[in-house]
Design a protein around this nucleic acid. Structure first.
Lengths: 329, 329
DNA sequence: ACGCAACGTGTAACCGGTTACATGTCTCAA
DNA sequence: TTGAGACATGTAACCGGTTACACGTTGCGT
């Protein structure tokens, strides 16, 4: 037995398909009798409207594409949680499309969004300007997250990486640290670059403070490896700032394994404030990831629903959170 | 300028829409010339096929609905990560629909899946049998996760909760613990029930061992509150088994705050093995959450694509992981 | 030279909804 | 009595793809 269609419902209720559609969509001008007959037929047949058909004729899907890079753990779940809150509140579903770094299939998935979503949130801090412009689907409203180079074309929401990184620098200087290590994110990543740059800018203003930057890939493992290498080379250092919490956590493990006291011998700070940071007492930069997701999706839905165009580009504020890895043990 | 349609491409390439469709879908019997003209027209117009239209005529969406309860943090991201791996590998997108506990809108979201997805993964351990049967959309292939009462109707994949809980019981007994607390999950939750039941079954076989069970709601906070209450009432205990890691982590915090030594004074164990458990040294039951997601989605895709029907019901194995909260400090 | 098959292509129906417009009925004022 | 207007309802076109079927060419064997 195939699924019931609106015509089945119409013939069963002895009315036209137009009337059925009107009843289902809460249209005003329908008689009480028609309304009841349709309701009865719908219940008897267990009828559910077919979303694809509706989308086609209404040019509306009530879905939003969420395009994210391979995200590590908690950042991912937090941002999706925030988006899900506003999506379900406003009657949308989220279509997840992860953009596997370096995979050509990933970018084609982006184009496949046409006719599937009413708009998309795209986070692609690792893509270059031209590369990105080429893969964005035409005709779909888009809000970009932490993605550089499209500010003129699409509304863009970014973290205030510079403010966060300089706050950390300030904090480490106030603690009197002199030999500082920065574990940066991947080279092509815009967030990573901004953090590294602002951090370096603040530190090099000070006499007698050295900074060395090494590259990681945002994974815990890469943070651990970076610190292990440094320890192995016998280079002295008394502070580590990792470009995200995952790498900071890796760094903590390497230090603990080597028996270095945190924060006495080495102060450690991260970026993001993922939930785990609180448990480990990690000093970090609080981003409010879920709020970032909420805020950006709200903005996208507003433009889709025509409630005024959003500003071209906004900065999401961040805040330094001092915990035990730089304070009291 | 509106979006180009297949008819625009056809007229530009001076062929019929059928030919365009054949070229785009890699159909064999097309002349070289036609192929080239279509390719040129597609490129010039920046044409991208409209997914809703294609879905409607093919009765195929290449999307999978993922229906999850309000999940706490890492469990959520892990299971989605696993599903995303197989989805993107096999050319599907994931449509996220979170089932907010107690929200009537949530269940309607489930019906809205018709025409939007080719199948759905549903995880609803908090729903009763009839309630569930009423909200499941008809005519959509479904695999259930950790959800009881539909085994005859839909393939169901569940965790081996009993094995995990009795392994923990065994372990605590081997350590010589005598006064045991179990922080259970919510009453209506099937996983929670199975864990509590198996745990109790093993412990009550032993003379001289007492067990008290208190109820939590799977949140970290509820675990913390439960232990705080127990400490406050001066009731003695030397072991806590929480029905998930989140609550176990809350319990650890309450114990630390009260100055109780873990594991000397109180041994603590959880369930799930979320990534944070490793960092905190938490003894727990490893579930392989991402693998669970991979495995269940593969099974769903197999049935959708007709590669043999899956068994009615399978158990996902689990494994005890002993760390410092029950072993050496 | 003829018939037939294989092949490439085009026409139009179809998927399941929405909705502009036409139609029929009823009420009420002139 | 008649005509206008309000209202409920039905008919059919449309959204943008896919595909069954019909059609015209070409090449082959006899």
């Amino acid at each position: 037995m195939a699924e019931a269609t609106i015509r089945d419902v119409a013939s069963r209720a002895q009315v036209s398909v137009a009337s059925v559609s009107r009843v289902l969509n809460g249209f005003e001008k329908v008689s009480q009798q028609t309304r009841e007959r349709v309701a009865a037929a719908v219940a008897e047949l267990g009828y559910v409207p077919h979303a694809a058909a509706r989308s086609l004729s209404m040019a509306r899907t009530h879905s939003i594409g969420v395009v994210l890079p391979d995200l590590h753990g908690e950042f991912f779940s937090e941002i999706v949680r925030g988006m899900d809150r506003v999506a379900s509140e406003r009657g949308y579903l989220l279509l997840l499309a992860s953009l596997h770094v370096g995979s050509p299939l990933g970018t084609s998935a982006l184009r496949a969004l046409r006719g599937r979503v009413d708009g998309a949130m795209v986070m692609a801090p690792h893509l270059g300007e031209e590369e990105l412009a080429a893969t964005l689907p035409p005709g779909v409203p888009i809000v970009l997250l932490n993605t550089r180079g499209q500010e003129g074309r699409h509304p863009t929401i970014s973290l205030d990486n510079a403010a966060g990184a300089s706050a950390v620098a300030e904090h480490l200087l106030a603690l009197g640290r002199k030999r500082v290590i920065h574990i940066a994110g991947p080279l092509g990543n815009a967030d990573a670059q901004e953090r590294a740059q602002a951090f370096a800018a603040r530190l090099t203003q000070c006499e007698g403070v050295t900074l060395e930057t090494v590259e990681g890939d945002f994974s815990e493992q890469s943070g651990e490896a970076a610190v292990a290498t440094l320890l192995h080379s016998n280079q002295p250092f008394d502070a580590v700032f990792a470009a995200n919490d995952n790498m900071a956590i890796g760094a903590l493990q390497a230090l603990r394994q080597a028996g270095r006291q945190v924060p006495e011998a080495v102060a450690v700070a991260g970026f993001d404030d993922i939930p785990m940071a609180r448990h480990l007492g990690l000093t970090t930069v609080r981003v409010g990831i879920a709020e970032l997701g909420e805020h950006s999706l709200s903005e996208l839905l507003d433009t889709i629903e025509g409630r005024g165009a959003p500003p071209a580009s906004t900065l999401h504020p961040v805040e330094l959170v001092v915990r035990t890895t730089t304070g009291q043990p």
